[in-house]
Amino acid sequence: MFPTDRPRRLRTDGVRSLVSETSLSASDLIAPVFVDATADERVAIESMPGHERVPVSEAVARVEEVLATGVEAVMVFGIPESKDAVGSRAYAEDGVVQRAVRDIAAETDAYVITDVCLCEYTDHGHCGVVEEHAAEDPTLTVQNDETLDLLSKTAVSHAEAGADMVAPSSMTDGMVGAIRDGLDASGFDAVPVMSYAVKYESSFYGPFRDAADGAPAFGDRRHYQMDPANRREALREARADVEQGADVLMVKPGLPYLDVVRDVREGFDRPVAAYNVSGEYAMLHAAADRGWLDLEATAHESLLSLKRAGADLILTYFAEDVAESL
């Protein structure tokens, strides 16, 4: 009458860690770093507790803080001093990311990844060149092919500054191929591309748009970011990027799309990254502030779930706190 299969035997403290199926380490994590060309001192990001925009002069110090926790990789995002219709500061030689990356690459051992997009640099806040009269007509959207050359120029400028990897995030059809061609033609054939291959038009991005000053001035991004209802389309997007030369495939956001992380993991022989986005970070902090959950334990469990689903790399605002606790 008693059970013969007793899984609880392997849950005691002495053996539990030995049979644990999934592990999380600091080397799995990538920490976002926001560099602001308009700032003279660090500026707290209210909707993302513990995070700041830092001036270019503080970029190295900020990265050294990350490295001290055991995290080895950073993703650099930039807030430019000026914006225009084509995001020209994104690919300027003296742009905010280019300046910061030169310093970080010269003075630290961090693995430096750069976000390649135009939304922080355009005066309309969209991820590329918009069609004429788009502000008056919400059915108009970003011009796909006209945007590709600007993304390629941005990626090349980041590589010239010393970026170890570039990460296009605009969800522009053909972006990986255009960037790969541009890097190869400029002598950067060894610089890998981590594509935001599966990026949904998600409600979880709000705090990031505050952090990076990248909210659209009109309309939304549903015409180029994916519909949250779609799962099969994710494989189509990932497949296209693999065929164009993507070295790493990212799913964004992470937690609401664990099924998609698993699908991409099983479908392709490429490392898979998951972006544990700002809204996921902010909501755990909000709940912890009310005493509803343990922040450290919940953050660790959240990232562990991404690893369990199949993520090899995790871009997360929890990177430093979790790394220190591991």
Rank of each mutant, 00 (worst) to 15 (best):
V15W: 01
V15P: 04
V56H: 03
V54Q: 04
D40K: 12
V86F: 14
R16V: 08
P55V: 04
R11Q: 08
P80K: 03
I30D: 08
S47P: 09
S23A: 15
A73D: 11
E41T: 12
V56M: 04
T12R: 15
V60E: 02
P80N: 02
A92I: 07
A44D: 14
G70L: 05
R53S: 08
L10I: 12
L18T: 10
A90L: 04
T12N: 14
E52W: 12
P55D: 09
V86H: 13
S23M: 10
S17N: 13
R11N: 11
H51E: 09
A90H: 05
S23Y: 11
E52N: 12
V74D: 02
Y91H: 13
R53P: 08
E93L: 06
G70C: 01
D36E: 04
A61I: 06
V43F: 01
G50S: 09
P32A: 09
A85C: 05
E81C: 06
M75I: 15
G87F: 00
L67C: 06
P55T: 02
V35C: 08
S82Y: 13
V43C: 03
S27F: 03
G50V: 11
V15Q: 02
A68I: 09
R16A: 13
M48Y: 07
L24T: 10
A44F: 03
